[in-house]
């Protein structure tokens, strides 16, 4: 009996160790992969990074100078897309999670949102060109590009907001409604403040997504080269991902601008990284504040 038990215990221990070993190895492999990619970009691109690189106009057929207009363009596009996607997405999620009853309407909206998330980004680009650029006559502009990018991340905003709202314990809603509060009072005074840190996190993560997208801006806003900064939302703009594509594949001197391409990639990654760090910091800050209020 005892030897049988020992045998079983050993068998359990071995299978446990194997499973843990595999999981650990995979986790470290993922981290390692990320570091390899980052290191690759940093090593190849760090040489061009300078104050001038991020604050100067491109010159000499984009083989010299900086990428300032592309940085500004990307920031403008991120801002424009969020001004559109954030309110629409959050309100849609509130409607879906707090107001609609379970049933076929909710199912259809959910399914459509998921489908929207699966549409290839180049299709968004074509749609944006057709609707915003041509049909509505915005032309190639920050407005058209921002709206297209906004449509692209709308499902992301809706889904992260929905998840944040779902995470709010139902008894908070019941307690509020139980005090005679209306549904909107409950949503705005109790549910949203609790969900806010997570909603903000979702928003900032979608900023990372927007700043890296190339296809949707290809036909709607991105300029090959612009000697000046955009002055209104109806202007074209350069953007980091497209600029990277241009100097890597169809620049005036691809070999010469190779390092600049990696430098551009590095800046793009930094923007995403910074926005992620910001997301974490904000979540912590508001998480504390919600408790205190």
């Amino acid at each position: 009996m005892n030897s049988k038990n020992n045998k079983l215990a050993r068998k359990k221990r071995i299978s446990q160790n194997i499973a843990f070993g595999i999981f650990t190895a995979i986790s470290y492999a993922i981290v390692a992969l990320l570091f390899v990619i980052l290191a690759f970009i940093v090593i190849k691109g760090i040489s061009v990074i300078s104050w001038e690189f991020i604050t100067a106009m491109p010159s000499e057929g984009m083989t010299e100078g900086g990428i300032f207009p592309a940085i500004v363009g990307t920031l403008c596009l991120v801002f424009a897309s969020m001004v559109f996607a954030f309110p629409v997405g959050v309100l849609a999620a509130i409607y879906m999670n707090e107001y609609v009853k379970d049933g076929w309407i909710k199912k259809i909206i959910k399914q459509m949102t998921n489908n929207l998330a699966g549409v290839p980004s180049i299709v968004f680009g074509l749609f944006g060109m057709s609707l915003f650029v041509n049909q509505l006559g915005f032309g190639d502009s920050i407005l058209a590009g921002g709206l297209t990018l906004g449509l692209l991340v709308l499902p992301v905003v809706i889904r992260t907001t929905e998840e944040s709202l779902k995470a709010v314990d139902a008894t908070f809603r019941q307690a509020s409604l139980g005090l005679g509060a209306s549904k909107w009072q409950t949503t705005s005074k109790v549910v949203l403040p609790i969900a806010f840190p997570n909603i903000i996190t979702g928003l900032i993560l979608s900023i990372g997504r927007v700043s890296g997208e190339t296809a949707p801006i290809l036909f709607t806003v991105a300029a090959y080269f612009l000697p000046k900064l955009p002055s209104s939302i109806f202007d074209q703009a350069m953007a980091l991902p497209y600029h990277l594509y241009v100097i890597a594949t169809s620049g005036t001197n691809i070999e010469k601008s190779r390092a600049m391409a990696y430098g551009t990639a590095l800046i793009l990654i930094l923007i995403v990284l910074i926005s992620n760090l910001l997301a974490n910091a904000l979540r912590k800050y508001y998480g504390k504040k919600v408790k205190m209020n």
């Binding site: 019941q174 509020s176 005090l179 005679g180 209306s182 009072q185 005074k189 609790i194 209020n293």
Partner: peptide, 26 residues
Amino acid sequence: VGMVFQKPNPFPKTIYENVAYGLRVN
């Protein structure tokens, strides 16, 4: 008809605001 729940579920607000909440929403 007031209600008290199984798990204590004060709102993430101050002690004062928790009690004042029902008055304010009404």
